[in-house]
Design a binder for these strands. Structure first.
Length: 1081
RNA sequence: GGGCGGUUAGCUCAGUUGGUAGAGCGUCUCGUUUACACCGAGAAUGUCGGGGGUUCGAGCCCCUCACCGCCCACCA
């Protein structure tokens, strides 16, 4: 190992490293899934990007989220498949190709369908790889062997199957209805592909004369040109102003057509004039009215948005030109009454970016209602799918409830051609609205069907239209796995586990997949749907092509590395579903947040270099797990922290808290591991071979490797690179395939297998009889405590308390004949919580809480317990020195007594009881916190006093609390090392000759004193002390106020009250110290 | 017109079942200690959008108002 180190530069260079691992993963088929291996499946299908697309920040964000989830689940042992692919994006591709043709002054009709499609496929072959290769650059752990395209053979087969089955079940029909017509792409579009935009328009008021010459009716419209197609005027039948006119007729200006006045509820008498012109062929409302009243439907538009022969004098004009002309005409005729400014919404085509025209045409539709019923049933009865965040479930539901039939035909060529063949020979060789047709999976099959119906002279022609792209996308989760065949993949990986996507396509895609799948597979195709937010630009704006405010992920990848970009994006995610904002400077292409993540990757890199330099060329495996016997306080601390980190990380990811998990890892790596542990361990690493050095090496190696694993799903490349160097793994082994750390795993190599006192993650089981026998175990974590004789005595006392209490328990138990319940109960009780010294009482509380709280034995038991308590307290007092007297007082005083008197409170009070018991040593983390705070206080004081950072000084730490002194003693080497202290004194009280020559600070109830050689700045010191004092006093005030409130003491949970007491005591102590100091200045 | 999200330190945002307000970036002061200057040490910074209410206690729960943003909707 050492020999490989010179190769490790002091700065991590992402570009080469990332590409290297991407290639190695792919070449070694590291992410190839295999259904036959069994296990618990974890499957995600990629939301297929458009083949036309190129990578944008949304892809980067989404892929980062998915890849993190996927890598995590792979590492925790699930049989994982992430299936990649692309979508044929019918309109987008068609638009691109038609633009190309236009450049050559051609239309698609000029070259014909076949040539057009040939061009399309060629284009796909040339450009379709762009997005896919850019996804590779993100390091996505997809199974490339299963890559799919919505128009490839298998998926096209699925589309045929789905269409034919729908049709045969009566769920697809062809009909003449009003659809949204996009004049730009000259195709129908679905409701979803229409977005309404608010525009400043006008409301034109016209007068239509009554045929009988008795007057006029005034109507208002935002679209004057449609009047050419008017076939009625409607009024509300309840409207007294116009009721009498119903049944009369009007003469439509320009067209000179006679049209009726009808009565319809839909008309709002309060709006406009209360009279509505009705254009059944060009407005959805009017369409409905037209049907209700049997009005003629006059279509005035051609497919390109110009007026047809029904436009009278305006035939051939564009719809907007015609509008002007109509207005002018009416004005000249005197029919125009007024023009109002009017803000209203206009439907725009999503793709074509032009206003859509409601138009009647013959299209294919999916009958949604019966399918939606099934999908809704899954949601309502099985809560499937489960949305994260849950609020999207409601959005999804509302949409399903209000669905209208889905227009699936598009007048385009690129896509799945509709598998319907018309018997054109029946209608003079043309496809007309009434031409009979057959639906089949192939032309041959269609031919057979047609012949059966129309004889062998029949001529058939396939419907020229293609299907909405979302029809095939809707089949994606199962068509990609082999459906309609019952393949091994489909059987094993379906339904998929999680779908990760943006809220903007819940309707387009998520809901349609759910509809299709509930119909065809009888299941919802994914268990969870994780809806992420948008990546917004540096100003919080939505990134869009039109605003040209996109941030190119590839630029940031180039600059900072993929891992950095991914980490930056994920770290920003709070909870789930919230939009994130990406810092970005367009002038320099720099991003603060990505830079911060790059720095983190570099920090990880350098920490790893440091560790590797100090391992004597050994791998973690060669060093072995940390040997508990030789662990020092710092080792135990970092191992304890690491264990907690493992649990935290797993818990967070399991609940989709990726941002939280990423932040936790960042804090641990940078804060705990680098800033503290590595610094603390440096002196030990400089020693010659020693158990202490080995323990440090083992701990470093163990924690580093573990952290690399934890981080891998978030930063796959840099962790893979470091891991290989660290473990000397061969090139065909991957961190990506290593097991994820588990909190419960025995991490320490030890001769005493059963007790890892510093490992809090594993509660041990014990029997009733073991309860007393377990006692000596608690000595383990306290061994260092026992090094002082005074401590030994205290320990013996504690032992006595525990024993007595334990006996009390047993007596009570036997006395009340509940022994039968005991053994099983105690089995479930964790026995080795290392910080528990008074665990006799603790388990008594637990026992009562768990078993007697609701039973009728309780009252009698309580009574007896009260007696026992008195005995115990007495015996403690009898055998006590000062300290345990204090203990007894404390017990008597509040919590313990409360606990015993009020059964309900017992469980929550036990922690308070423990903190209150001054003789109990602090747990490892508490000790460490005190040490860290003390170091910080010394550093602060040094800076305040302008002591040169490198200058060794003398420091006295004073505390009246024995356990604090103990912790400080345990950490004295650390304090000396990290605060540059040459002489450290830990004392109960201080005698000072010259107090004016001393810098003073307080942390907890520890007083930190630095005697100075020269004269110190009294004013500066006074200012500092006063500031500290003010803070402490404010705290005292706040907590005193709280504790004086009887209701707080009575009603707040005991642990909260106790916490307040502890804080108050500490703050009071601080005030005392600080006042004393100030008085002496 | 319905529905949803947001409003916390100069900026970007956390804040777990109500229990003494946090992080990163930026700012200021120190620092070439042999992993890292893409670094280390220290410091400063908040009427938690306004107003009510519930509670011993509210950034968190309820009501209300304001502003920002999104989604849905057939008022011509």
């Amino acid at each position: 190992m050492t020999e490989t180190l010179p190769a490790l530069s002091s700065q991590y260079e992402p570009s080469a490293t990332e590409v290297k691992w991407q290639a190695l993963w792919e070449d070694n088929h590291a992410f190839q899934a295999d259904a036959s291996k069994g296990g618990e499946p974890y499957c995600v299908v990629i939301p297929p990007p458009n083949v036309t697309g190129s990578l944008h920040m949304g892809h980067a964000f989404e892929s980062a989220l998915i890849d993190t989830l996927v890598r995590y689940h792979r590492m925790i042992g699930r049989n994982t498949l992430w299936l990649p692919g692309t979508d044929h994006a019918s309109i987008a591709v068609q638009t691109i190709l038609e633009r190309q043709l236009k450049a050559e002054d051609k239309t698609r009709n000029d070259i014909g369908r076949e040539a057009f499609l040939e061009k399309a496929w060629q284009w796909k072959a040339e450009s379709g790889g762009t997005i896919v290769n850019q996804l590779r650059r993100l390091g996505v752990s997809v199974d490339w062997s299963r890559e799919r395209f919505t128009m490839d053979e298998g998926l096209s087969k699925a589309v045929l199957e789905a269409f034919v089955r729908f049709y045969e079940e009566g769920l697809i029909y062809r009909g003449n209805y009003m659809v949204n017509w996009c004049p730009a792409s000259q195709s129908a579009v679905s409701d979803l592909e229409v977005e309404s935009k608010e525009v400043d328009g006008n409301l034109w008021h016209f007068r239509y004369p009554l045929t009988d010459g008795s007057g006029y009716v005034e109507v208002a419209t935002t679209r004057p040109e449609t009047m050419l197609g008017d076939t009625a005027v409607a009024v509300n039948p309840e409207d007294d102003r116009y009721r009498h006119l119903i049944g009369k007729t009007l003469k439509l200006p320009i067209m000179e057509r006679e049209i009726p006045i009808i009565g319809d509820e839909l008309v709002d008498p309060t709006f406009g004039t209360g009279c509505v012109k009705v254009t059944p062929a060009h407005d959805p409302n009017d369409f409905a009215m037209g049907q209700r009243h049997n009005l003629p439907f006059i279509n005035i538009l051609n497919k390109d948005g110009t007026l047809n022969e029904n436009g009278g004098p305006f035939e051939g004009l564009d719809r907007f030109e015609a509008r002007k002309e109509v207005i002018e005409w009416l004005q000249t005729e005197g029919a125009l009454v007024k023009i109002e400014d009017y803000k209203h919404t206009v439907p725009y085509s999503d793709r074509g970016k032009v206003p859509v025209e409601p138009l009647i045409s013959t299209q294919w539709f999916v009958k949604i209602e019966p399918i939606a019923q099934k999908t809704l049933a899954f949601l309502d009865e099985e809560q499937s799918p489960h949305f994260v965040p849950e609020r999207w479930g409601k959005v999804y539901r509302d949409w399903l409830v209000n669905l209208k039939d889905w227009c699936i035909s598009r007048q385009l060529w690129w896509g799945h051609q509709i598998p319907a063949w018309y018997a054109v020979s029946e209608t003079e060789g043309e496809i007309r609205d009434n031409t009979p047709f057959v639906v089949a999976k192939s032309e041959a099959e269609a031919w057979e069907k047609a012949v059966a119906q129309f004889g062998d002279q029949v001529k058939i022609q396939q419907d020229p239209d293609v299907l909405d792209t979302w029809f095939s996308s809707g089949l994606w989760p199962f068509s990609t796995l082999g459906w309609p065949e019952q393949t091994a993949d489909l059987n094993f990986y379906y339904p998929t586990t999680t779908l990760v996507t943006g809220f903007d396509i819940i309707f387009f895609w998520v809901a349609r997949m759910a509809l299709m799948a509930s119909h065809f597979t009888g299941q919802i195709p994914f268990k969870d749907v994780y809806i992420h937010g948008l990546v917004r630009d540096e100003n919080g704006k939505k990134m869009s092509k039109s605003a040209d405010n996109g941030i190119n992920p590839l630029i940031l990848i180039e600059k900072y590395g993929t891992d950095a970009l991914r980490y930056a994006l994920i770290r920003e995610v709070a909870g789930a579903g919230q939009d994130i904002r990406l810092e970005y400077n367009r002038a320099t292409d720099e991003s603060g947040s990505v830079e911060a993540s790059r720095n983190f990757a570099n920090k990880l890199w350098n920490a790893s270099r440091f560790v590797m330099i100090n391992l004597n060329g050994q791998t973690p495996a060669q060093l072995g797990n940390p040997n508990r016997d030789n662990l020092e306080l710092a080792d135990r601390w970092i191992l304890e922290k690491f264990e907690r980190l493992v649990t935290q990380t797993r818990t967070s990811i399991d609940s989709y808290g990726l941002g939280e998990a990423a932040k936790g890892l960042y804090e641990f790596m940078w804060g705990d591991f680098c800033d503290w542990y590595i610094e603390l361990v440096k002196p030990r690493l400089r020693q010659d071979d020693s158990p202490s050095r080995l323990a440090a090496q083992q701990t470093l190696a163990y924690v580093l490797e573990g952290t690399l694993k934890l981080l891998h799903p978030f930063m796959p490349h840099v962790t893979e690179e470091i891991w290989h160097t660290l473990t000397q793994a061969s090139a065909d082994q991957f961190l990506a395939l290593q097991p994820y750390p588990k909190a419960a795993a025995p991490v320490v190599q030890t001769s005493l297998d059963n007790d890892d006192p510093w490992n809090p993650a594993e509660p041990e089981e014990a029997t009733a009889t073991a309860s007393a026998a377990a006692m000596p175990k608690t000595e383990k974590p306290s061994l260092n405590v026992l090094s002082e004789p005074g401590q030994l005595i205290k320990f013996a006392l504690q032992y006595k308390q525990v024993l007595l209490i334990g006996l009390g328990v047993v007596a009570a138990i036997i006395g009340f004949n509940v022994l039968d319940g005991v053994i099983s109960t105690l089995n479930a009780v964790p026995f080795v919580e290392p910080t528990l010294e008074l665990f006799g009482l603790y388990y008594l509380g637990q026992f009562i809480y768990k078993n007697l709280l609701w039973s009728d034995r309780r009252q009698a038991f309580t009574r007896s317990l009260g007696e026992e308590k008195q005995k115990i307290l007495k015996s403690i007092r009898d055998g006590a020195n000062n300290t345990s007297e204090q203990t007894a007082e404390v017990l008597e005083d509040n919590t313990a007594v409360l606990a015993l008197q009020r059964l309900r409170a017992i469980k929550t009070s036990d922690r308070a009881l423990i903190t209150q018991t001054a003789s109990a040593p602090l747990g490892i983390e508490a000790q460490f916190e005190l040490i860290i705070d003390t170091i910080r206080t010394i550093r602060n004081l040094r800076q305040e006093a302008s002591i040169k950072p490198g200058l060794p000084i003398a420091v006295t730490l004073q505390s009246e609390s024995e356990r604090e002194r103990l912790a400080l003693t345990n950490g004295q080497d650390y304090i000396k090392d990290l605060a540059k202290v040459a002489e450290l004194t830990i004392a109960t009280t201080v005698i000072e000759d010259d107090l004016k020559q001393t810098m003073v600070g307080v942390t907890g109830t520890v007083q930190v004193l630095i005697p100075l050689a020269g004269v110190i700045d009294i004013d500066a010191l006074r200012a500092k002390l006063e500031k500290d004092l003010a803070k402490a006093e404010k705290e005292v005030q706040s907590f005193q106020g709280r504790l004086q409130n009887q209701k707080f003491v009575d009603q707040a949970p005991p642990e909260v009250v106790q916490g307040a007491r502890d804080t108050l005591a500490e703050a009071e102590k601080q005030v005392e110290i600080l006042c004393d100091r100030l008085a002496r200045l």
